[in-house]
Structure formats: structure tokens, C-alpha cells
Amino acid sequence: MDCAKYLELLSDYCDGTLDDETRALVQMHLGECLPCDGILHDLDTIVRTAVILRSETNSITYPDEQIIWQRLSLSKQIIH
């Protein structure tokens, strides 16, 4: 297999969803191919950072909660 084939397997490798044999093949390739190993490292970093985002709500800018609440109340008469 060449790098392109291994590249297709890197997400599954990352997620631990490859069968043992394929996993071993990928592992062997990663040991001898710096570019593929670098990509795996990057994908892994992305995946681990994404998990943090799930509970991290401070990494985005929020609109004013009060303004949306007012719009909500006006449009649907939630406040009677």
C-alpha cells in the first residue's frame, strides 16, 4: 500500500475502529513514514481538542442572552 491508502485509514486508526491486522499494518507504516505519522499526530490533536470544546463554552463569543430572551418573549408571548 502507498501513502494515499494509509491516509484513508488514519481517522479509523485515530478512533480505534480498525481490525487488528489493518491496525498493525498502519502502525508499521507510521513507523517508517514521517509525513503520515505527522498527519496522524495532527488529526489526533484536532480530535482531542474537539472533545474539549464539548464542555468548553468559553471559546466562542455569545450574543446577549437578555436580548434573545426579549425577542423570544415578544414573538411568542412567553411572558404574558
Binding site: G38, H41, D42, T45, T49, E56, S59
Partner: peptide, 9 residues
């Protein structure tokens, strides 16, 4: 081949 360092959230 440079690996990405820690990604800023």
C-alpha cells in the same frame, strides 16, 4: 513533516 503544536481552542 512538522507536527502541529497544541491547537488553540
Amino acid at each position: 513533516p512538522n507536527k502541529m503544536p497544541i491547537i488553540d481552542r
